[in-house]
Design a binder for these strands. Structure first.
Lengths: 344, 344
DNA sequence: GATCGGTTTGCAATCGATTGCAAGAAATAA
DNA sequence: TTATTTCTTGCAATCGATTGCAAACCGATC
């Protein structure tokens, strides 16, 4: 008994012998196949626990052509260092992990720097995973389009209004940009900086919302206030410093493309003793855990990543079942905190 | 030609036929086996690219009994919500991803909540991964010990001074606690709070450093100043508020167990208009990206996670090669910023 | 032209679980 | 008792790549 437990490499055949059944019965019993009598199933499953037997995943995957693994690819923006350190991205990964596990899938983590260029080939054809979840559209969507065109099941976190043949899950970016800007305008801001690169799909939508908000308020839009920077706090910090050096404090509000960007801006302003929100109001994006901890706490647009993760998994599974899929736009929410003046 | 490319499911046999060689030659050529003539290898590899052929990982794993996958388990502290959102943990994951990829391994992400209780069995025996990297010792090390006792290759991120049969990689926690505390004492602090639960291995070491620093400075240690809280900013926030309500501002320094904890404390203090560092100095731990962005920027103990990740992978690979392994203590570094008074 | 040494290639068994099909057991009907 | 139906179970082929061993090949030497 004991020695058997120690013997790690129980094979299904050996285990079936122990249980006194054939391999087919053993296999079916372990998979709770109703073809097998309930009492037999119970007995076999109990024995499996006792002997620490578990199915060889490699063999099973070879035979069934299913891996129950989903590859999650962090599609970082190429040259920049938005990097794997971005708390928001990692939060998404954490939520995906939870959502996938809930559906019985495992999560294989990759980023766009490693792996090959041919995602479909590397992950799917070679049977490493059953589907792809790509976090971020990057600046170009070439690789994504290429993968999708091979018919590989995939879902993207990005801007859901993009017109694509694959489903995209994301927040309502235009509304987010709109709400953020409107909130600042309501608080009395006249000249609002937009910190983020509109060349990127999601950012472009937010920028559209930013412009819309100006129009609706009959304010004209100064293109010089749109700063196309990388999505990092450092870029924001540098940008604000540079801007003030060049033009003085020629703004009274900031719409930042992420909380990290907002924090970088905040730091630059504080160092110059600019009052927040007295002199400049700031709105971030994402609502990462730290937004609330800042001083002043950061007004921001919250994205519901847990729900997003569920939706992504849902859309992916739909593809496995050959059901129709569609992009999903998630509601966003303005979280008012202390970094912005309240409407008067 | 074109139709062939579209036909996704090329098998090695079919591919070999295309290339005009046997499966064995094809297989060897793809693996750069020197048995095969160089020109043949080149030809086969070129063809593989052209036809988008890649080996079926499931079949390969079944045959070779190697997966080239490492399972990374976030060993969260059970009841609390240190959660997958902790930036430090996720930073470690990001670094591990990089270090593993560099050595040709893929990263399967799990956390202690999912999966089964029997890690060795679930991941290794069932051939899902070749080894385990466990991030965090949790509050009990039962599962780890159980897994290690089966002889499974594993490495732990935790307190390397723990006496174990498996290698642990981690920072010099005692020195970290010591340096943090000494720094505060040098800055004139008299009553220093310790925010973190000494019941946890790493924390216990840091606490030992904290005590040592007091002794070396001939200061006595007030046990009432040690606050055994969860590793979350929220717990810290609550704790500080409670403490001040009960005892007033009966401290002038804080050693926090993580930057997140420090930030929670910081928030509570700022809300009460306590001057940082004028009234209270704070030192965090980890040096997450946000430490620098805080206002005041956070003095903290930096852990070199990138190096740690490399060391962990190294120790794991050593086990694959049946070489001796050992725990690794990494240097830590005090990063002086603005949340603490400088030595006078 | 036969033989030898060395290089290059191919045959066929193997890894372990799954599953279509068919046989065996049990239960019911005639 | 035998025929028929309904449950259960088992046989054996299959998934696709790898690799020990042996065969084929090449040029050179005797």
């Amino acid at each position: 008994m004991y020695t058997l437990k120690k013997n790690q490499k129980l094979t299904l055949a050996q285990f079936a012998a122990l249980a006194g059944v054939s391999t087919s019965t053993a296999s079916r019993a372990l998979n709770d196949n109703p073809l097998i009598k309930q009492t037999t199933r119970d007995k076999v499953q109990a024995l499996a626990k006792e002997y620490d037997y578990s199915v060889n995943a490699a063999a099973s995957r070879l035979r069934t052509q299913k891996t129950n693994v989903i590859a999650v690819i962090l599609n970082l923006i190429d040259n920049t260092e938005q990097s794997v350190a971005d708390p928001f991205l990692l939060k998404v990964v954490g939520d995906l992990n939870k959502a996938l596990n809930a559906k019985g899938y495992e999560l294989l983590l990759s980023n766009s720097f490693m792996a090959t260029d041919n995602w479909a080939n590397y992950f799917i054809t070679s049977k490493r995973a059953d589907g792809l979840i790509i976090v971020g559209q990057g600046k170009s969507t070439e690789k994504i389009t290429a993968a999708a065109s091979t018919g590989v099941p995939l879902v993207v976190w990005g801007d859901p209004t993009s017109d694509t043949h694959y489903p995209i899950v994301g927040g309502n970016n235009r509304l987010g940009g709109y709400k953020a800007t409107t909130h600042l305008i309501a608080g009395g801001c006249q000249r609002i900086l937009f910190l983020g690169d509109p060349g990127h799909a999601e950012m472009s939508e937010r920028h559209a919302g930013y412009k819309q908000a100006h129009q609706d308020a009959n304010m004209n839009i100064d293109p010089a206030l749109t700063m196309p920077i990388d999505i990092t706090s450092k870029a924001a910090y540098t940008c604000i410093n540079q801007f003030i050096r060049d033009h003085g404090l020629a703004f009274d509000g900031i719409v930042a493309i992420s909380d990290m960007v907002a924090l970088g801006a905040l730091k630059a302003l504080k160092e110059r003793y600019v009052g927040i929100p007295a002199d400049v109001s700031i709105v971030g994006y994402d609502d990462i855990a730290l937004a609330e901890l800042m001083h002043p706490s950061l007004t921001t647009i919250r994205q519901n990543t847990a729900l997003a993760a569920e939706k992504m998994v849902e859309q992916l599974i739909a593809q496995f079942n050959h059901q129709a899929t569609h992009s999903v736009v998630l509601d966003i929410e303005l979280i008012e905190r202390r970094s912005s003046r309240t409407s008067t």
